[in-house]
């Protein structure tokens, strides 16, 4: 491969696949915020759209 093509392929790989790995690591390290705003959990907050018995 020509040097410039090789360099661009390697750089592309580093940025995109590297970006993917970085994003995964970031998500694993901090899967959730530490404090959520109040509410937003459990069925008492379910936003039922339909009430029916099927």
């Amino acid at each position: 491969m020509t040097p410039s093509a090789l360099i661009l392929m390697v750089v592309s790989i580093l940025i995109l696949w590297g970006g993917l790995i970085a994003a995964i690591v970031a998500l694993r390290l901090r899967p959730e915020v530490d404090v959520y705003p109040p509410g937003g959990e459990g069925t008492e907050h379910t936003d039922a759209i339909i009430e029916h018995d099927t």
Partner: peptide, 17 residues
């Protein structure tokens, strides 16, 4: 109670990768 942006980055980079 769900993280939105961090998984979003994973999706975007996975797609491009």
């Amino acid at each position: 109670r769900s993280n939105l942006t961090s998984p979003g980055l994973v999706v975007a980079f996975a797609n491009s990768s």
